[in-house]
Amino acid sequence: MQNNFTNKLNAFSVLYVEDEDGIRKNIEEILRHLFKETNSASNASEAYAKYLEFNPDLIITDIKMGAETGIDLIKKIRKSDSKTRIIISSAHTDLDYLLQAAELHLVKYIVKPITQDKLMNALEAFVNTYNEDKIYNLDPNWIFDYKESIISNGNEIFTLTKKENTFLRLLITKNRLITYEELENSVWDDDSIMTANAMRLFIKNFRKKLPQNFLKNIQGLGYKLIKE
């Protein structure tokens, strides 16, 4: 499994819902090594309470769990939340369940038993949903969400200014040195002038939101990203 993939997972949180104790403990142990935060629940009622408390990025839930099913849980969540990613696991391939699941905007449907390959494929699909929303991996545990204009290191979230957002995306997409002229033409507003003092203050504040030593100044030329 690629380091880039696991680095991205480590920036997210997960809630795992399974009523069989043995399965829940085994899968939860795997998830704890992959995600920044892992919580679990043994039924739909407990899961909904933990969803409200922890606001996970991903929910992995079984379907059949006594009185309330995983489908019931997801329907309740989807009444007010269309963004939280959800993966369903089930020993059943019943067409009715599949049809209901298809309407709930799921990332993946895993047929039990949950093998490591099935789990990793589903988690890769989860990460890819963020790639589609312009999520970039900056460094281990650090992600840049262009759409939301934030940087997260798993513990803190930094909100970017419009200039910072534009500049970081330019650095990432070009993947080369960005000259002072490019910085002025692409990042600075048409109605403002990029003075030396204004640029220094901009870079000073911008660096506070980035991994340490991530942005390098090439004297007299411009800036580039330094990734380990």
Rank of each mutant, 00 (worst) to 15 (best):
L52R: 11
P113A: 15
A91T: 12
A49M: 13
H105P: 04
S45F: 06
Y97F: 15
E46D: 09
I86V: 15
I86L: 05
Y97E: 14
M120K: 03
E18D: 11
V107E: 02
Y97K: 08
E37N: 08
K64V: 15
V17I: 12
D94I: 07
A101S: 06
R78E: 10
K64H: 13
Y109M: 09
E18G: 04
E103G: 09
K112M: 13
L73Q: 08
E29D: 15
E29L: 15
H92G: 12
S40T: 06
Y16L: 09
T93S: 08
N121E: 11
A44T: 07
N55Y: 08
P56N: 04
G70L: 03
F126Y: 14
E103Q: 14
E18V: 11
L95W: 06
D72C: 11
L58F: 02
R78L: 10
L58G: 10
K75D: 12
T129W: 01
S90C: 02
K64M: 11
L98A: 08
L119F: 09
N43W: 13
L31N: 01
G66V: 10
A91P: 14
K112I: 12
V17Q: 01
K108Q: 07
L95I: 08
M65N: 07
E28I: 00
K36I: 04
L52E: 10
E18C: 11
L123K: 00
F126W: 05
K36H: 14
D72P: 06
R85K: 14
I60K: 02
E28T: 09
D72W: 05
E124D: 13
V17A: 03
I60G: 08
I110N: 05
Y16M: 08
H92R: 05
I88S: 02
Y48I: 06
P113D: 14
D21M: 13
I30R: 07
L52P: 02
Y48T: 07
L99F: 04
T93F: 03
K36G: 08
E124Q: 13
L99D: 12
I59E: 02
D19H: 09
